[in-house]
Structures are given as C-alpha cells and as structure tokens.
Design a protein around this nucleic acid. Structure first.
Lengths: 117, 117
DNA sequence: TAAACATATGAGCATTCATTCAAGTGAAGG
DNA sequence: CCTTCACTTGAATGAATGCTCATATGTTTA
C-alpha cells in the first residue's frame, strides 16, 4: 500500500510555496469558516433575514418560521455565541436583533447575487 | 401537553407580517445557505484560499494542506458541483482554479474583517 | 402563592458530513 | 501490453449537528 498524500511527488513546488506564503494563519481560516458555517443553515439564514427586517422575539420567530420556540432558541444560542445577534429582555419576552453588520453585509451580497438584483 | 410553537400566542403580529413580506423566497434562502455551508468547512476554506493565489493540481493541494488527495478530491467535487471551482486537464494532472468571483469576494470580505485589515 | 407563560437548556435521536480505505479510470512511459 | 501515476469514486465509520421532548428558570398575573 502506498502513501497517498503526495509527500514525495510534488508537481509544482514553486506554486505550493507561493500559495503557502500567502495563506492566512490556520487559526484565522478556521474562524472564518466557523462564521460561514453558522450562515450555512436554512433555519439560521431565515432567522437572520427576519431580524434584518425588524426586531423580533423568540415566539415571533417561531411563528414566522413555523417551528418550535425550542428549536429557534437553540439556534439563537449559536448566533449569540458568535456575536451575530444581540438580545434585550422585556419582562419574560426576549427580543433579538442583528449585532454584526459584517455578517449582514455577507448575507446581503449573497442574496443579491442569488436573485441577480 | 401544550403545543409549543406559538401558533396561538403571537406577540407582535405586525412585525411578523412585515418580516414575512420582506423575506426572500424559501428556495432562495436555501440556496444561499447551501453556498455558505460550502464555505463553512476549514478544508474547503483552505482550498479556496490557495486557489485564490494560484492554479493548483489535486496533488499540490494535498501536499499544501497535508491531506490525502482522496480527501481533497472529495471536497473539490462539492465545490465543482456548485460552480465555485473549475478544472482543466493536462494529461493525467487536473488543475483547479476559482470560478466564482462572488464567492471570492465573500471570502475576501470575511478574511479582511477577521484580520482587521 | 399558585398558575400561566416565554425562554433556555440538557439529553436523546436521526441525519448529515468529513475522512479513510479500497477499488476503478484514464493517461503516460517503459 | 503492462506498469505507474494522478485522480475519482463508492462504501464504511466516527464525529458533528438540528430537532424534539422534558424540564428548568424567571416573570407576570390571577
């Protein structure tokens, strides 16, 4: 059995070196990927789209997306942990808003591209 | 046991209607999420970063990322299916390049934000 | 205080997914 | 031809993930 990772047979040493030199840190790439992963789920994408329009509480989001508030709450927890959404409490109701204009920009750009606007 | 989906207890009917009216089609949101999901993996993110620098063959990418070419090939297949990368054959070697400036923009914006450039 | 309610959260479960392993394809060279 | 090599691909596996269900928390109201 042979080692299938091209450790010996490098085809374009020059280009590899060039790419390696310009590659951002591993940690940075992992962080960026982590953010994209959060945007890579339909439920979370819908939540972000809705919050881009207006502030909403968990129950509103659940009604809008026709899902349980538990499911919504779980997803909001992930978005919160990344600082993508922010919340404010009004009694027992918790209102969520977007808290990362950078992410909002990404979504807008993508949406614009998808709908060819 | 009660129905936990807020179908009855709507808090802000007005806002829900407003959000619903401005929400893009379900299908569009799913598509956008699907693209983000592809960007949401460290391996694929590294591949895209490398290809943003220069054209590389599978073996080069494997060497650069220190992974098997099988693993790389599997990921390239997904990126190809979305039209994010393109390939050209040179004998038995297959060279890959980026094929979606929109995605490239997304990654650049994110990277720029992450590194506070 | 007790009940109702909005939300949060932990465990469980079914599904998805990234990688590995083994086998297959097609091109280049002996 | 036959072998080698770059790449692809299908199956298998272990890890990650999204949702449900049950329960907990904290707030409002009867």
């Amino acid at each position: 059995m042979m080692q299938d990772s091209c450790q010996v047979t490098v085809i374009n040493e020059q280009r590899i070196a060039q790419a390696r030199a310009q590659m951002p840190d591993e940690a940075v790439l992992v962080e960026v990927a982590e953010t994209f992963k959060l945007l890579g789920d339909p439920t979370r994408m819908k939540i972000l789209q809705a919050l881009a329009v207006t502030e909403l509480c968990v129950c509103d989001l659940a009604a809008l997306l026709e899902m349980t508030s538990s499911a919504i709450s779980h997803q909001l927890r992930l978005l919160r942990a990344r600082g993508i959404v922010r919340f404010r409490k009004a009694g027992k109701i918790v209102y969520y808003t977007l808290d990362d204009s950078h992410v909002q920009t990404l979504v807008e750009v993508s949406l614009c591209h998808e709908t060819e606007c």
